[in-house]
Amino acid sequence: MQDLRIVGISGNVKAPSRTSSLVAAVLRQIESRFGSSGRHIDLAVSAPALFRALRVDQLDEEGTEIVRAVESADVLVVGSPVYRASYSGALKHLFDLVHYEALAGKPVILAATGGTPLHGLMIDHQLRPLFSFFKALALPTSVYALESDFNSYAVASSDIQKRIRAAVHELELIVPHARTLALARAEEQSRLSA
């Protein structure tokens, strides 16, 4: 059986980052519920490999691998800091390189961090239309966190943890067989190692 391919993308361009921590928290919850390991692409680290190219055919091996990981994901978690009322340019550039048909029908959990509660509107006014273009399934519950929701870059708010759990529950409704497959795989591996 094949693992569920879970990819988290943090659109931040500096580290440490609250956005990266938020995406990591969502990934951990998915991993816990589905029994599959996820991959976290932090653009603070990966953006230079992507910025070396304006088109996908100009990417080097490292950049191509990043784009292919996004395109082949079964589930995406996409987060960005709110910057000038939108998502980061680094995140935009990554999705400029993703094939327009590659994400059709794939579930996406949207997340963002910002300075005021009003910045949370960016998810619905900017991120949702982006994934609508790709015909991806942006889940209804998004996760938006303020600076006050963190303690030393770690998610500290019980309300944010609750939203993360709600989004992952929606994912389970969209991909109900994934958890069953993961549990069966774990039982099979346990029997083989015994």
Rank of each mutant, 00 (worst) to 15 (best):
A15H: 07
P16Q: 12
P16L: 15
R18D: 14
T19G: 10
S21C: 12
L22A: 10
A25C: 01
V26P: 15
L27H: 04
L27P: 04
Q29I: 03
I30L: 03
I30Y: 05
E31F: 01
E31N: 12
F34V: 07
G35K: 09
S36V: 01
S36C: 13
S36L: 13
R39K: 01
D42N: 14
D42V: 12
L43H: 04
L43A: 07
L43I: 15
P48R: 00
A49Y: 07
A49W: 03
A49R: 08
L50Y: 02
L50S: 12
R55L: 14
V56S: 14
V56G: 03
L59W: 02
E62A: 14
T64P: 03
E65N: 12
E65W: 05
I66W: 00
V67Q: 10
R68Q: 11
A69G: 10
V70P: 08
S72W: 11
A73Y: 09
A73R: 09
D74A: 08
L76Q: 06
Y83R: 05
G89R: 04
G89I: 09
G89P: 05
A90L: 00
L91N: 11
L94R: 11
F95W: 13
F95K: 12
F95C: 06
D96V: 04
L97T: 05
H99Y: 08
Y100I: 14
E101Y: 14
E101P: 06
L103E: 10
V108G: 02
V108D: 04
V108R: 04
I109E: 04
T113F: 03
G115C: 08
G115K: 01
T116M: 07
T116E: 12
L118I: 15
L118N: 13
G120V: 11
D124F: 02
H125L: 15
